[in-house]
């Protein structure tokens, strides 16, 4: 099992989708993050409770269509970045 992360509830964020990128205003930190897919989706998946990268990919596959090969590694890398900026936290 990989590192299990949790995220703040959606009310802690304000998300604005623009042309190519998404903006996230994170209320607890007062910081703005400019992100692209699948970061908003990963955060969405964490609203149903803490999960590791594999579980997040499983949840994503229920709602989105994509090639799962390499997806766990990619999601794990995004989670590490999200941890560094404080949008997710290890449980």
């Amino acid at each position: 099992m990989g590192i299990v992360y949790r995220a703040d509830p959606p009310s802690a964020r304000c998300l604005v989708a623009l042309d190519a990128l998404d903006l996230i205003y994170h209320r607890p930190s007062g910081m703005t993050h400019i992100v692209s897919e699948p970061v908003p989706q990963i955060l969405d998946m964490l609203t149903n409770g803490p999960a590791d990268a594999e579980a997040i990919v499983v949840r994503l596959l229920e709602q989105h269509d994509f090639d799962p090969e390499g997806a766990v590694e990619a999601v794990a890398a995004r989670l590490a970045e999200l941890e560094a900026i404080g949008l997710v936290e290890r449980t």
């Binding site: 209320r27 607890p28 930190s29 007062g30 404080g86």
Partner: peptide, 8 residues
């Protein structure tokens, strides 16, 4: 807010 975030 940002001071508390820094502490967190």
């Amino acid at each position: 807010r940002s001071a508390l975030w820094e502490a967190e």
